[in-house]
């Protein structure tokens, strides 16, 4: 192949007809090259394994083989050199895979953290169990029934007073009952207040309502205490802190009443010392 660098020439009929002048060293020996090659291969094989007993091959097929070999050699195989055959070739098993790859970051974090690494951390995630079709249908019906049951439980108080039977509940419940049911539903979904809560009313009424509620609560707690019943902890009402909303253009401190601005002691302190609570250490905060 050495002389034919560059573009490969077209093989003419004439060239094919000629006895091969292949550059391969295997066929350099002048004798019957096919025979020779076979012998070499056999010797190499027998050096390794037990000798085979081969009956002599008929020359016809041998010729064909030679032809084939020539063809191959002509095309692109440069052949193996006969000198190398006796030597043992050693392959170094060098891993190419491990050079660049790194452990997943999560695993590194798990291993290099200060905790002893747990053995259960596996990199491969488990496949999710797949649901079959009838399972799905069953699941849907279960969910539906669940929702229905929840609703029934929620509205059980209405049941007893308004509609004495179950059948009448799901149908067209009338007027007030319907509103109440809607209200309960809304509250279950997360509404802040009931729709029945009255928004506007005279202040005295509201005060009265609040006072009455508190009185009831106090009474309940007092009775429980007397009877030795442990009740839930009382919720402490938070005092509203923060700034009072002031009118537009009104002074931002003090109390304006009757044409006079009244400043309390605290107001004065806040003006003079730049923040009342800081006290003597308020040097930093002074602007």
């Amino acid at each position: 192949m050495a002389p034919t660098l560059g573009k490969r020439k077209r093989i003419t009929r004439e060239e094919l007809e000629r006895p091969s002048r292949s550059p391969s060293p295997s066929s350099e020996s002048q004798g019957s090259d096919g025979e020779d090659l076979q012998a070499i291969f056999r010797r190499a094989f027998e050096a390794k394994f037990k000798p085979l007993d081969i009956e002599p091959v008929n020359p016809k097929s041998e010729e064909e083989e030679v032809q084939e070999e020539e063809q191959e050699e002509q095309t692109d195989w440069s052949g193996i050199s006969s000198e190398d055959e006796d030597q043992v070739e050693v392959f170094e098993y060098a891993d190419t895979r491990h050079t660049g790859d790194r452990a997943p970051k999560a695993e590194m974090r798990a291993f290099m953290s200060s905790k002893p690494p747990s053995s259960s951390t596996s990199t491969a995630s488990k496949p999710m169990p797949t649901a079959t079709k009838e399972d799905d249908a069953l699941e849907v019906s279960h969910l539906k029934n669940d929702a229905e049951l929840q609703k029934l439980l929620r509205e059980s108080t209405l049941l007893s007073t308004n509609t004495p039977t179950f059948s009448t509940r799901t149908g067209v419940s009338k007027g007030n009952a319907r509103h109440k049911s809607t209200d309960l539903h809304l509250q279950a979904l997360g509404a802040k207040t009931s729709i029945f809560k009255q928004k506007s009313m005279p202040m005295s009424h509201r005060k009265g309502i609040v006072a009455k509620a508190r009185m009831r609560e106090d009474k309940r707690r007092a009775e429980a205490r007397e009877n030795g019943i442990v009740l839930e902890l009382e919720k402490k009402e938070k005092k509203v802190t923060g700034k009072r909303e002031r009118g537009v253009g009104a002074p931002s401190v003090g109390r304006f009443k009757g044409g006079t601005l009244t400043l309390s002691r605290r107001d004065v302190a806040s003006i003079t010392s730049g923040g009342g609570r800081r006290g003597a250490k308020g040097k930093k905060g002074r602007r």
Binding site: F111, S114, K115, P116, P117, S118
Partner: peptide, 22 residues
Amino acid sequence: VRTAILPLYKNFGIDRNIELRV
């Protein structure tokens, strides 16, 4: 110690809140 000895304590039911910080 952290990766080969401390995990052994898990076999004895001792596994919570163990840390070895370098």
